[in-house]
Write a protein that binds this DNA or RNA. Structure first.
Length: 488
RNA sequence: GCCCCCAUCGUCUAGCGGCCUAGGAUGCCGCCCUCUCACGGCGGUGACAGGGGUUCGAAUCCCCUUGGGGGUACCA
């Protein structure tokens, strides 16, 4: 492992959504490509919104995706702890240092005062920036405020002149006039560090070499650079990856349906599909490859092939990719991932006995290229496991209400009764013979039979269905359908 | 309001001055295969936001406009 160190630093305030997952993935790919370290750090300094449950959830989602970390929660490492809430003494140490060196100061303004000032400034068309009033507080004034029990925040003294230039690996040089920034808060009145401060202290003390994060942080970067300078830390390299937008081009949020990794999992998407798809959102290998295995992506990944344009994620393409992977997956592996779904839908219970497993295997194989998600499998195979199904109305109208269908099915039933062994070849031969004798089109017999056996007008090849069901159940279902048709 | 970023088919993208009458994928449409539905194969639809420059030559470089996104919090 070399000295390339990157991190993913989510705040545990909700599920891991596709944007976060993509950021995590790019960091991870970068680390794996270069043989560096990938660190997971939990940014739980927002006491109000952070939850342990959310942290657990994020960790679970990352694990499911196969994004593993070299240092972080559950794993440890030489630069821990990896929860910011456990690093408070570190932030205290550095904020005190800034205070001692006169690079930061205590501010006693209340949130109400500040809000009022902002409002005032907005009305007058001035930028809503903090005035810097408390910079010049006298020692006495400070003492008095402290004695009154006011809880100050700590602000960084920001240079009023000059320019801060961010050197971004993806966007090139981006410059900011220092005067657009105010003396921003680095420690809140509850003693917790703000994002910009904790982030800098941690990235530096954790020896992060490349800060790869979403573009929404680009505007924060000059502030962080000011902190690096004030603290005497050396700068990491920055790379701001484009955002992922919801289909309506707005920022991703809860109201956009399935945006969390967890939801995609529940909907029957495969982790390797999410990874493949996400890798292609904002990055491409440079040629026309789209279906790429994880190892392939790792060897090809490079930051200079990351685009600058925000991407809208499109579940249509995700679904296509998922269907493709499902087709390519070995049946036994597919069954393994489908089992929880099958169980949930009451199709079967674990442990699956050998005899059932064989049937399950045949059934899954039969529907494998007909489903787009694993979650569709239970419904697709349900009639193989339950005799108790309804006939589709469309099928009844179209195929059961035809003249002479009952008679035709009766004839078919008699032929099939004599078929031995009952396999693909023999069943089809029997049917073809009957079709020829009657001088009808294949579909005229095959369609009503399918409705009789499955209740549906679509599905796997009819003879596959017969063989998987077995002779006995095939005949039973034909009998049942004939009876039903006669009552129509 | 101010600051920053971005701009190729509906969507994801290739393109880094001539190879572009702009390539691939997905979606959609049609045809073929076929017992249905899928799969697969073939074909079609569809984009350089607009305007100025620079250049022998611009999707590619520069400027403006427009549009989209982000930031501007005691959120991260």
């Amino acid at each position: 492992m070399n000295d390339i160190r990157v991190r993913f630093a989510p705040s545990p305030t909700g599920y891991l959504h596709v944007g976060g997952a993509r950021t995590a993935l790019f960091n991870w790919l970068f680390a794996r490509h270069h043989g560096g370290s990938f660190i997971l750090r939990i940014e739980d300094t927002d006491v109000e919104r952070s939850t342990e449950e959310s942290a657990r959830q994020i960790i679970q989602s990352l694990t499911w995706l196969g994004i593993d970390w070299d240092e972080g929660p559950l794993k440890g490492g030489d630069y821990g702890p990896y929860f910011q809430s456990e690093r408070l003494s570190l932030y205290r140490e550095y904020s005190q240092k800034l205070l001692d060196e006169g690079k930061a100061y205590l501010c006693f303004c209340t949130q109400e005062e500040l809000a009022r000032e902002r409002e005032e400034a907005r009305k007058q068309g001035r930028p809503p920036r903090y005035s810097g009033r408390c910079r010049d507080l006298s020692l006495e004034e400070r003492e008095r405020c402290l004695e009154e029990g006011r809880r100050p925040v700590i602000r960084l003294m920001v240079p009023r002149q000059g320019t801060t230039v961010v050197s971004d690996l993806i966007r090139g040089e981006v410059s900011f006039e220092n005067k657009v920034f105010d003396d921003f808060i680095i420690v809140k009145s509850d003693g917790m560090p703000t994002y910009n401060f904790a982030c800098v202290v941690d990235d530096s003390t954790m020896k992060i070499s490349h800060v790869i994060r979403a573009e929404e942080h680009l505007s924060n970067t000059p502030k962080q650079m000011m902190l690096y300078r004030a603290l005497g830390f050396s700068l990491p390299k920055f790379a701001h990856v484009p955002m992922i937008l919801a289909p309506d081009r707005s920022k991703l949020s809860k109201r956009h349906g399935a945006t969390s990794v967890e939801e995609f999992r529940e909907q029957g998407y495969l982790p390797e599909v999410i990874v493949n798809y996400l890798a292609l959102l904002g990055w491409s290998p440079g040629d026309n490859r789209e279906i790429m295995g994880i190892d392939e992506i790792i060897t090809e990944f490079s930051l200079d092939r990351v685009s600058k344009t925000a991407a809208v994620y499109d579940t249509k393409k995700l679904t296509w990719l998922n269907a493709h992977y499902i087709r390519e997956t070995a049946v036994d592996d597919l069954i393994k991932t489908a089992l929880p779904f099958l169980e949930k839908e009451g199709i079967l219970r674990e442990p699956v006995p050998d005899s059932t497993y064989q049937k399950l295997r045949d059934a899954v194989e039969a529907v494998q290229d007909r489903v787009k998600t694993v979650a569709e499998i239970p419904h697709a195979v349900s009639y193989f496991f339950s005799d108790d199904f309804e006939y589709e109305e469309k099928g009844v109208n179209k195929h059961f209400k035809k003249e002479g269908v009952a008679d035709l099915l009766r004839a078919a039933r008699e032929r099939l009764a004599e078929v031995e062994p009952f396999d693909l070849e023999t069943t089809e031969k029997a049917y073809r013979a009957l079709i020829a004798e009657r001088g009808i089109k294949g579909g005229q017999l095959i369609h009503p039979t399918r409705v009789a056996l499955t209740g549906r007008t679509f599905g796997p090849g009819l003879f596959d269905v017969m063989v998987i069901l077995g002779k006995e159940r095939t005949l039973e279902r034909l009998d049942r359908a004939i009876k039903m048709i006669e009552k129509l």
